[in-house]
Design a protein around this nucleic acid. Structure first.
Lengths: 242, 242
DNA sequence: AAACGAAATTCACATAGGTTATTGCATCGA
DNA sequence: TCGATGCAATAACCTATGTGAATTTCGTTT
């Protein structure tokens, strides 16, 4: 079984078996965190990068009056910070959504590996390109998409991200977020998430029960979202041949 | 006169005179673009990084029905893409807001320079950290801040960014955006930007006439925005001595 | 100074989404 | 079996922001 980290990075560059091994060796030892617990809090010195191995986590900020915004979701294989630098102090928190397994990686080691291995370096840069492109789409969603479009886009993007690490197929995936977490992730309220979910259900686009999201009509969902996956830059990889 | 690029990067790492020279030599030749013209359009192959030398530019996306979202503003000294990688095809457009002067830099040259010079590498990573932190704040703004808070935050952030390159002081700066551009940048409509601007004026926080933004009450503005500049990570630089 | 066009301002009205509260339904531990 | 508890669903009402016009101001050109 290849790790989700390697599995994801292979979409950005051609990695050999040896490259895969080098990456996986960095990702030790394995740590765990319980659901709803913080891995890092705003103001903490991070010391290491965080790599999610299993489960879901998120980057979030909380305003003084309690308003909370989830800035990014992290799935298996996701690096929670750009690989080359750590801030002295966190300007946001990193929280586990489900129970998670994760690794802590020192950025100087990551940098040394990238410097020594052009394929790995390429893969890591591609990953940053994708992270940043997803941030851009999020700005577009929050700024200009209606709730239903926004939710549809979110589902399409999540499905593709999970598919890259073998955790989703055409028909759906496991979505471990409750509606208030969805709300915090989408810049809406829980009540409105509920309404919008109902709307998508009524339109026959999705189903969602017991944390299992089923996409009933993929094309209609993509159309509503105007989801175009070019921003994943899956064309960046040179052909991997012998 | 040090270039705005070097001037900005000096906030992220200690650069010698020689480092500054190396960076400035990369940034040649100089190109120009007229106000309102696109430098790169969605779908174009970019070939080079874009470095803004003078004037304002922006990253934006346009939806099919005309809705437009400005994703980021680029000021003098700003690199419009992460320095180490270019997508094969742009997933967004890059447009000049004012007339601009800019340089085109090949990412392999940028990477080579960073690899050869640890101070420059550090500075570039800090710049990426800042870019990404600003994106996070934008998500918080769009998701959870009311129009007046959002606008106030935007002004505080812009002022600080411009101050880093000597283009703003405590009292204000030149803001070359018309209200419909402000609207596209903040995920609001021009009418509501107008209302909100009026509100901030009426509260005695700002003035804005003939593209000159004056901050009348900096503290009140910061309070309204709950603006905390820790996310600029201005503490990252090791002390620069002898 | 007149004339023009772009931008700012204002108005009346519409609506997407927020707020607060209630209900029902699982699940779970005692 | 019985409350707790957490979450989904829904309802009634509210408000921040959007929409689609005027109308006014202002900078620029003639």
């Amino acid at each position: 079984m290849t790790s989700p980290f390697v599995q994801k990075l292979r979409h950005g560059a051609c990695l050999t078996e040896e490259d895969a091994l080098l990456l996986d060796q960095l990702a030790r030892p394995v740590h765990v965190a319980q659901a709803h617990h913080d891995i890092l809090m705003e103001g903490d010195p991070p010391h290491t990068l965080t790599l999610i191995l299993e489960g879901w986590a998120c980057r979030y900020k909380q305003l003084d009056d309690g308003r909370r915004q989830i800035i990014a979701l992290f799935l298996p294989g996701d690096l929670c910070e750009p690989y080359g630098i750590l801030p002295h102090f966190m300007d946001h928190s990193l929280g586990a959504i489900t129970a998670i397994r994760y690794a802590r990686i020192r950025p100087d080691e990551m940098r040394a590996l990238a410097r020594a291995n052009a394929r790995i370096e390429e893969a890591l840069w591609w990953d940053m390109l994708l992270q940043s492109a997803m941030q851009h789409e999020q700005t577009v969603s929050f700024g200009r998409r209606l709730a239903a479009e926004r939710l549809a886009h979110f589902i399409c993007e999540l499905r593709l991200r999970l598919a890259l690490v073998g955790l989703a197929d055409e028909t759906g995936f496991e979505l471990p977020l409750i509606q208030s977490q969805l709300a915090d992730a989408m810049g809406l309220t829980a009540v409105h998430i509920n309404r919008t979910l109902m709307e998508l259900r009524a339109a026959g686009l999705i189903e969602l029960q017991r944390k299992q999201l089923t996409i009933r009509d993929p094309e209609a969902l993509r159309n509503l979202a105007v989801f175009d996956p070019v921003y994943f830059h899956l064309d960046q990889r040179k052909d991997c041949n012998g």
